[in-house]
């Protein structure tokens, strides 16, 4: 007959497991020395800032860097410079664009404001996107291949797994907004 382990042992095991899972959950970012990219023998892993040190201080998110970069910027958590030396004037455009109206997924609301707080108009226009609404043949397939929105989203801005952040307006509401009906 199998000898029964004491409840104390089981309790200790459970405590250890829960403690470990708490550690794991808190650890959203990998250390440079074990990220699979940095050579552990490089001087850099001793000197450079680990992702957790930089990003655990910023508003959290669930994807990408696990940082809400827009809130980090708009909330003043970070103050990235607009020019190499000092600051330069730049245009922040507060205009939303509705796209994919009549599509089989919710319509896309593209907000100019958070984009122009980071980027100049010329970063997107007229190269990646034509300024004229509807003039650029954007498809999800192209985006997934790293074109259009996919130049940044899926690479450095929030990943393409976050469908609803762009496809955020019910078709019924998008159509009403375009027609100007309540």
């Amino acid at each position: 007959m199998r000898k029964r382990t004491t409840p104390y042992f089981e309790c200790a095991l459970l405590t250890l497991a829960l403690g470990w899972s708490a550690v794991v959950m808190a650890q959203n970012w990998r250390k440079l020395e074990s990220d699979g990219l940095h050579d552990p023998g490089s001087e850099a892993v001793k000197v450079l800032q680990d992702p957790a040190e930089a990003m655990s201080q910023l508003p959290p998110d669930t994807a990408g860097n696990k940082v809400d970069w827009i809130r980090a910027l708009q909330g003043g958590y970070i103050k990235p410079r607009s020019a190499l030396r000092g600051e330069k004037e730049y245009e922040v455009l507060d205009g939303d664009v509705l796209m994919n109206i009549g599509g089989s997924t919710p319509a896309v609301l593209f907000p100019h404001k958070p984009h122009t707080q980071w980027l100049d108009c010329k970063n997107c226009h007229e190269g990646l996107f034509q300024s004229k609404a509807g003039a650029t043949p954007i498809t999800m397939e192209k985006i997934l291949q790293g074109e259009y929105c996919g130049v940044c989203h899926g690479a450095v801005a929030f990943p393409l797994t976050e469908c609803n952040r762009c496809h955020s307006v019910r078709q019924m509401d998008a159509i009403k907004r375009v027609r100007g009906t309540p």
Binding site: A54, W69, A72, I78, P80, R81, S82, A83, L84, Y90, Q117, W118, L119, D120, N123, V156
Partner: peptide, 8 residues
């Protein structure tokens, strides 16, 4: 990007 906006 913590230190510089994309435009830089």
């Amino acid at each position: 990007r913590i230190r510089f906006q994309c435009r830089v």
